[in-house]
């Protein structure tokens, strides 16, 4: 029960991050939102594992944490290189 409530709470945060990703306005706001969404996905998977009483799923959460970080750094490297990083929106 606690876990279900926590999972729903995390989903609310994910929704808020998603809204920020839709709204922008700058590229960096979107990247920030994606990063936040990724972190929340990691937490959601961890909580979901406990909710369904199969916490072995945590390996996926670890993979997500790794991929999220590497992805964000890769995206930023790209943005910095692209015509001084000035993107329209």
């Amino acid at each position: 029960m606690i876990f279900a409530a926590a999972a729903l709470g995390i989903l609310v945060v994910m929704g808020l991050a998603l809204a920020r990703a839709f709204l922008g306005p700058s590229v960096y706001d979107r990247i920030l939102a994606v990063n936040m969404f990724g972190t929340k996905t990691v937490l959601l998977i961890a909580v979901y594992g406990f909710l369904t009483e199969r916490p072995d799923f945590l390996d996926i959460a670890i993979t997500y944490a790794l991929i999220n970080f590497i992805g964000i750094i890769a995206v930023l490297k790209f943005v910095e290189r692209l015509d001084n990083g000035t993107l329209p929106d």
Binding site: A5, A6, G9, I10, V12, V13, G15, L16, A17, M36, K40, L43
Partner: peptide
Amino acid sequence: VFLGISGG
């Protein structure tokens, strides 16, 4: 969860 929603 409260902190998360605050951040959101």
